[in-house]
Design a protein around this nucleic acid. Structure first.
Length: 264
DNA sequence: ATGGTGGGTAGCCCA
């Protein structure tokens, strides 16, 4: 049985205290992080090593973005895709060695896309769609058992947001983004593992804005983070958790970690 | 209708 986690950490160096707490309490075998906001040289390798996470694949960038996968299971970094074609660090792919051997874990941070959902008025929105199109072309060729996890910055279902009608023109829940993400899903037949275990229309959020006061009371959340898998791998998943309590920890990230257990 | 908060890094960008 292997346990895989994903978490947009919003600066890994600042948040090592809560990362350590999460690893001690939930002991995933592998953790994929997004928005590490640091270069490789300053990644806190030693803190992870002390907890047994001695295998690392870090794709960093100064100040912005950046992703990393740390693991107790040996792994091999196999790819760093630049699906935006602009040099930003938003992906790292690894192959697990030992337990889970042969499985590929893709860690991705899809661009947020700015505020205006129109590529004519907002370059970032166009870049987000282009990123998804390039991912779709890549997904069409995926031919190994693969799990793709991370911050997709899209909440596709009505039950993935606090208010479907209120958010139809808000970047992350527009019909165009949802359709574009669906084409990516169909290109490989990705199974939305989170929704296999917490089925629509149950409430499922992974992110609450820092700007919204009283996140727990108002609960204006969205499901921006995802764990998707190839069908044969998805069929072996046995549990899935959303650790909402982490949003209430000291100096929290605005995202919470997701954990999937796979019988391999 | 608007601005609200947080992180990183050096005078704003990004979420």
């Amino acid at each position: 049985m292997i346990k895989i986690a994903t978490w947009n950490i919003n600066s890994v160096r600042l948040r090592m205290p809560i990362v350590e707490r999460f690893l001690k309490e939930h002991a995933p075998d592998v953790l994929s992080l997004q928005e590490i906001k640091t270069v490789e040289e300053l990644f806190p390798y030693e803190a992870f090593n002390k907890l047994g996470y001695t295998h690392h694949a870090v794709h960093g960038q100064k100040g912005y973005h950046g992703v990393a996968t740390v693991s107790r299971i040996p792994l091999k970094e196999i790819s760093r895709h630049d699906w935006q074609d602009n040099g930003e660090a938003r992906h790292v792919g690894v192959e697990l060695l030992g337990p889970g051997q042969g499985m590929v874990l893709e860690n991705v941070y899809i661009p947020a896309g700015g505020d205006i959902p129109d590529r004519e008025e907002n370059v970032k929105f166009g870049q987000k769609l282009d990123f998804l199109e390039r991912m779709t072309r890549w997904a069409d060729k995926v031919d190994r058992p693969t799990m793709i996890v991370g911050d997709f910055n899209i909440a596709p279902l009505e039950s993935d947001v606090w208010g479907h009608k209120q958010l139809l023109k808000v970047v992350s829940h527009t019909p165009l983004e949802v359709e574009t993400l669906k084409r990516f899903q169909d290109a490989h037949g990705w199974v939305d593992v989170g929704r296999e275990h917490i089925r629509d229309p149950q409430r499922y959020f992974s992110w609450w804005s820092y700007r919204s006061k009283d996140w727990r009371v108002n609960d204006r959340g969205r499901r921006l983070d995802h764990m998707w898998a190839s069908p044969e791998l998805a069929a072996r998943t046995v549990s899935h958790q959303v650790h909402e309590d982490c949003r209430g920890w000291e100096k929290p990230s605005d995202h919470v970690p997701l954990v999937t257990e796979i019988d391999l």
